[in-house]
Write a protein that binds this DNA or RNA. Structure first.
Lengths: 189, 189
DNA sequence: CTGGCTGATGTCAGTCGCTGACATCGGTGA
DNA sequence: TCACCGATGTCAGCGACTGACATCAGCCAG
């Protein structure tokens, strides 16, 4: 071992998730998180821009997955279906992490500041998807709209997945939700 | 005049918008806003839960408008069209405030924290719309999806409206955006 | 008329999120 | 071997936000 224990960042993420779950986000200070990770508050802020971000850094990796998925979608697909297969393809990213996702979501559900961060992260995924569509030659506002619908489907499917123990797979829920969206927008009741 | 000048809240809103625009949101302290309004920092926080909220209190009134609009939508309409007419009906709320909306939006566009707040406010509008649909007998996930699409249309139409000087009316842009959304979700390119 | 109550505001002290500046010191490469 | 680097620590400070208590014009009951 070098001068410091390795994996500082990972230790901070673990400590934060634990403490936010045990005591609640608002009742946990950054100093406490850092101490549990064997570090100082200052070091926490060198790894994460703020107290919330420590719960969202995985999202960046997911964004990359999503970009790859939209690039790899068959070019003959319409925008909405390209988005559909891209979103569905990302399901694998979460399938074997249900417990983690559940804990994380329950922490977020209890705090408005965390919900704000979650929303803005989803919005940045919308941008990534829309950019991907534009690279496929889709013009605005179709690109924005298709991307927006894709992330809506993603969000709603995730919500269902988390809440249904022993329910369908995430990928299946995503396909399902996209179908539901198409029906609704076509004027079905 | 009583013991204090009246309209403290309104003075704070005005002072905040001015200062956030002049110096930027991050470069403005709450104390400065309060002073320009002839009040103290503590009083600011009695009127607004935080430094950001002062830009968003109009949103609550708008939420009410939206709820009324969805209640008043003809009951024979499909969920998506009920949402469509409701959103379109709210356009009047903004039509004669373009300049204010522009300034406000330019302030928000420059600060990520404000964008987070904006998103969460839009999410709460989605909830209001979805509740309204459920009261019309629409089941989930159709209610959530239709509501989500409605606010997406709202957001995109607002964006276009703000950026196009002498462009179409907001109501027209909303109708237009909903049509575009329907086409995209139907698989058009 | 008067005295007590109310409610909007002020004052003050304190916590916590977050930042800049500078110090520390193992590891690494010329 | 030694100068440098980079991850961390230390410290001081700002600003957002909160709780507790003080103030005092206006209003209302008596």
């Amino acid at each position: 071992m070098g001068r410091w224990r390795p994996d500082a960042r990972q230790r901070l993420e673990k400590a934060a998730l634990e403490l936010y779950q045990e005591r609640g986000f608002a009742q946990t200070t950054v100093t406490e998180v850092a101490e549990r990770a064997g570090l100082t508050e200052r070091t926490f802020f060198r790894h994460f821009v703020d107290k919330r971000e420590v719960l969202f850094s995985a999202g960046d990796a997911f964004g990359q997955t999503l970009v790859e998925a939209i690039e790899n979608a068959p070019s003959k697909l319409s925008p909405i279906d390209a988005v559909g297969v891209a979103v569905e393809a990302t399901a694998a990213f979460f399938e074997n992490r249900l417990e983690f996702v559940r804990v994380r979501q329950s922490v977020i559900a209890e705090n408005p500041e965390l919900q704000e961060r979650e929303r803005i992260k989803l919005a940045s995924l919308v941008s990534l998807l829309a950019d991907g569509l534009r690279r496929r030659g889709v013009a605005d506002p179709a690109a924005s709209l298709a991307a927006e619908m894709g992330i809506t489907v993603f969000r709603i499917a995730m919500g269902r997945w988390i809440n249904e123990p022993n329910g369908p797979s995430l990928a299946m829920l995503m396909r399902d939700s996209l179908d539901a969206l198409k029906k609704v927008s076509a004027g079905k009741r």
